[in-house]
Design a protein around this nucleic acid. Structure first.
Length: 432
DNA sequence: TCTGGGGTCCTAGGACCC
DNA sequence: TCTGGGGTCCTAGGACCC
């Protein structure tokens, strides 16, 4: 038995904790570069604002709707997430943190009234952190996800489901006929693992509700679609196929990619950007104690600028030996971007990926003849500590283009709120 | 004028081996 | 005229997730 707890409209809810006047208003949080809506309040959803809708289009379509847009403040959301997760963990003995706003709890060993217990945890998160949550319970992770969707929808749209399923929904406690009615009322695209493409194929085959999908034969699904969809069908039928991971496995690849604030044409600027992305990726790599054996850099033009000539290329550079050394990784990334660059294009985005990751504790023994074999891990650890204490970028390689505030590739974030919980200068003051 | 970032898994097909 | 069988590894691309 599993529960899934997640924060409603999480980024918007985080912002509202510190700006209560946003309650009841259509609020959206924008992606980096203030590009698209990546979180929407219920009021914004009711206005028809779609997930991923570009901000400039929203402004054109709804000039008078009073939509409040905010730049994403991931530092704030990350800190609020940690606080919420700590309380959510109290629901059961094991927790899997699945995303910034969702965690699964393994309830297998739990007795008592799970729904009443879930309501108490939900109330505690709301009171202590200020974030409204939904909790779904089911015999598999896929069913818990579905239950969570029902809990939130019943709360948000009265009449869509029986009111007692709102906020906390335990699908495994429903009598079969009630369960069938709920599944029949739920569109199949709401299932975890059924996206746009597969959803369209299923509808093409004459199915429409989750109940239709539950009644499929898994062997047929495997033959006609894939083992992935077969697993989803089995999970919906109550057969657990997706494991519970209470410790997060190490990442197999690490990326840092960004769209630019303005089109970039010069190789020099791309080298600066890629140097910075590679430095950040190397930090993440060290944080999980891994080494990378290959570095990939890519650049491309904007597919949205139809009038521009399009170009896209990625180049992978193998490292002499697996490493987490920023300077070696930046060197490789710069070599890659030089190889990928072609003059005469408006570049809109670049990125660095670290590939072929392995545990930092594993070493291939060999004789070191060259300077490249110098062990700078102590230096790297010091750089990481300095940047942690004094802020990202306090110590950096010169190739990242220091102290140039006018860099055209830097992203736009004109609507960002303060880091209320993680910077002393930003801590809110309460006036008596 | 303005359209995000970071991941995972699976499959098909090609290269290569004996 | 007729041209095998069985296997592994790698990569690119598709699909999904939040």
């Amino acid at each position: 038995m599993y529960a899934l707890i997640d924060g409603n409209n999480f980024y918007v809810s985080c912002e509202r904790v510190f700006r209560p006047s946003l309650a009841g208003q259509p609020v959206i949080v924008l992606s980096n570069n203030d590009g698209c809506a990546i979180a929407r309040s219920n009021e914004a959803k009711a206005l028809g604002i779609a997930m991923g809708a570009p901000w400039f289009q929203i402004q054109q379509k709804l000039p008078d709707a009073g939509v409040v847009a905010l730049s994403a403040n991931f530092t704030l959301y990350g800190d609020m997430s940690n606080r919420m997760m700590a309380i959510a963990a109290g629901l059961g003995p094991e927790q899997e943190i699945y995303s910034i706003d969702e965690s699964f709890i393994d309830l297998s060993a739990m007795g008592g009234d799970l729904v009443a217990r879930s309501h108490r945890v939900r109330e505690r998160i709301l009171q202590w952190i200020g974030i409204p949550c939904g909790i779904g319970i089911g015999s598999t992770k896929t069913l818990a996800k579905l239950a969570n969707h029902i809990a939130k929808t019943a709360d948000r749209k009265p009449g869509s489901y029986p009111a007692e399923l709102g906020r906390v929904c335990n699908l495994s406690a429903l009598p079969q006929s009630d369960l069938d009615a709920v599944l029949a009322a739920t569109e199949l695209g709401e299932v975890w693992g059924i996206g746009r493409r597969i959803g369209a194929q299923l509808r093409e085959a004459g199915l429409s509700s989750v109940l239709d999908v539950v009644r499929l034969d898994p062997a047929m699904v495997r033959g006609r679609w894939s083992v992935v969809l077969e697993r989803t069908v089995r999970e919906l039928q109550g057969q657990a196929c997706v494991g519970f991971e209470d410790v997060a496995p190490a990442k197999k690849e690490i990326a840092c990619t960004r769209s630019f604030g303005h089109p970039v044409t010069q190789l020099k600027e791309l080298i600066e950007a890629v140097s910075q992305f590679a430095s950040r990726a190397a930090e993440k790599l060290r944080a999980q104690g891994s080494h990378a054996a290959q570095v990939l850099a890519f650049i491309h033009t904007s597919p949205f600028r139809r009038q521009d000539k399009q170009y896209s290329r990625s180049v992978t550079v193998p490292l002499r030996r697996p490493t987490a050394d920023t300077s070696l990784i930046v060197q490789a990334a710069v070599a890659a971007v030089k190889a990928a660059f072609k003059p005469g294009f408006n570049y809109s985005k670049a990125g660095v990926m670290l590939l072929d990751l392995q545990a930092g504790s594993v070493h291939q023994g060999e004789l070191a003849f060259d300077e490249e074999g110098t062990d700078r891990s102590a230096l790297m650890a010091t750089v990481d500590r300095l940047n942690d204490r004094f802020g990202r970028g306090a110590v950096a390689l010169a190739s990242t283009g220091q102290s140039d505030g006018q860099r055209g590739w830097r992203m736009k974030q004109s609507l960002k709120t303060p880091e209320y919980t993680t910077r002393w200068a930003d801590v809110p003051r309460v006036l008596a």
